[in-house]
């Protein structure tokens, strides 16, 4: 079963993501801070990470950068989730090692299609 790590601090949004992904039969593991996300990424070895950018403590960019430095995780798909119109977020996310970029608010149909797309390329 495909395992997806969701790094998201807002419990409602976390719940939304979890609900949608579970609906499509993905195995979910969660983290509510960047630090926890790194730990989970190492311990759970997910197939894909959904990374919220605005996080308390180290943000999604920094978390992505650190995950990419870990040997086994350099190739793992990381999809950044960010609010619309934050200046240069998209480019910044991609340059720091994110595989993709999804803009909030998420569209349940679209997000499944995008995730499926990224996993295919794996």
């Amino acid at each position: 079963m495909t395992k997806i790590l969701i790094v998201e601090d807002n419990p409602n949004n976390l719940y939304l993501m979890r609900f949608i992904l579970k609906k499509y039969g993905f195995e979910i593991t969660e983290a509510i801070t960047g630090e926890e996300g790194i730990v989970k990424a190492v311990s759970e070895k997910p197939d894909l990470i959904l990374m919220d950018i605005q996080l308390p403590g180290i943000d999604g960019f920094e978390t992505t950068r650190r995950i990419r430095e870990i040997k086994d995780l350099s190739e793992i798909p990381i999809i950044a989730l960010t609010s619309y119109a934050m200046t240069g977020d998209r480019e910044k996310a991609l340059s720091l090692g994110c595989t993709g970029y999804i803009e909030k608010p998420i569209d349940p149909d679209k997000i499944i299609a995008q995730i499926t797309e990224f996993l295919k390329g794996d």
Partner: peptide, 23 residues
């Protein structure tokens, strides 16, 4: 504000769509 406003909107829109889909 954009963040704080959009974060709840994300849930509102997301769940509305889910409800409309009958999930």
């Amino acid at each position: 504000m954009s963040h704080e406003l959009r974060t709840p909107l994300n849930s509102i829109i997301g769940f509305t769509v889910i409800l409309l889909k009958g999930w």
